[in-house]
Design a protein around this nucleic acid. Structure first.
Lengths: 198, 198
DNA sequence: GTAAGTTACGGAGACCGTCTCCGTTTTGTC
DNA sequence: GACAAAACGGAGACGGTCTCCGTAACTTAC
């Protein structure tokens, strides 16, 4: 591969690429510390660049977020492949949903834009979300085929549940309420009642 | 009752009360139109008062919200009394959770501060939330006594689930996904498996 | 190596929302 | 009507978002 697809046929300038990855690195740091609602100008300042440069690279907070998350995509893809080996379809679905839940908790406040991405489908995150729903659907179907998941459950709803659970996590952790209580509640919701074949 | 509890033993000034209720009226309107994240100064302007006056009455967005919701408390109290008559404890709990869910959807974006109120317990909304959890606990206990709800479920978690479901509602409504899918998922989660006595 | 052309950078500043401070006005009391 | 207390209003400080355009950096051609 030649390395890039710029609008013109030219290779992108070296400083552009350098800045881009530097921004991503700083943003990752900053969002980890302050949650995704931290000041973008502050990120620019910390990165030692002007706000204009930041916004040229990432016109919106969501696009920056999307770029950050894309870096984690590979990891999650690998995880998905591993889960595919799981023979028990219910356990596979459960593990996949856990993985998504973890992914959605990467930064404080992340669930909010994810939810928005699902409604306004103009967000750079929309595609990622829809991909996840598709994968969820695969695991869900497998579980349903095996009679391990209720038939009326839909992948989209499961995805939303996971996001919602992640959203609530902060609150759940504060009190003695275990963070997994909601996850369990949800799992009981989609799992088929224990049958004779179990 | 003499009508008030001012810091000094005095009755509050008439214009104060007038302004207060006028603000509430306008804010209700404004939040209904724009969601709870609309500009507070805009509310002041629409109410024909200065920002200072608004902030003197309601120092934070949450306190304004709390005052608005308090107006609905009576309605919900009445509803709770009605639900108490319900003989089937599972149905009662379900109806109560529906009621809370509706309450939490009064304004766009309301679930967010509710969740925060549960963590930071410094929000004016904290008390209201805890009240709801207590009521939920009553209904839940009744259902558990009757073997209609799983014993490991906790009221706080149910409340969080309801809030989370309300939070997701916008997204759920956008696509063909029925808004009730999550509610059903949740209900299946807390309901005890259908027993012989059913 | 350097000139020309292109691409990207930087930061001043417009705009908007939050929230405060204090001079002015309204209200209640005697 | 005069006085004190309470409440009002809005100018403006502050911080965040985002843009515009003069300047600098990079690339290519020669």
């Amino acid at each position: 591969m030649t390395g890039n697809t710029e609008p013109s046929g030219r290779r992108p300038r070296s400083d552009k690429q350098r800045n881009r990855s530097h921004i991503l690195q700083i943003a990752e740091q900053y969002f980890t510390e302050h949650g995704i609602n931290g000041s973008l100008d502050a990120i620019a300042k910390r990165a030692g660049i002007g706000p204009g440069t930041l916004y040229r690279h990432f016109p919106t907070r969501e696009s920056l977020l999307a770029a950050l998350l894309q870096a984690r995509d590979e990891e999650l893809d690998a995880r998905r492949e591993a889960i595919r080996q799981e023979p028990d379809a219910a356990r596979a679905l459960a593990r996949w949903l856990d993985a998504v839940g973890e992914w959605a908790t990467a930064f404080d406040g992340l669930p909010e834009p994810l939810r928005e991405a699902l409604t306004e489908n103009k967000s750079p995150l929309t595609l990622t979300c829809q991909g996840f729903i598709t994968y969820t659907d695969e695991f869900l179907h497998a579980a349903q085929r095996d009679g391990k998941a209720r038939n009326e459950v839909r992948a989209r709803d499961l995805f939303l549940s996971v996001i919602a659970t992640s959203w609530v996590r902060n609150a759940a952790m504060a009190e003695e309420s275990s963070p997994s209580a909601l996850r369990d509640l949800m799992r009981t919701g989609w799992a088929a009642p224990a049958g004779v074949d179990d």
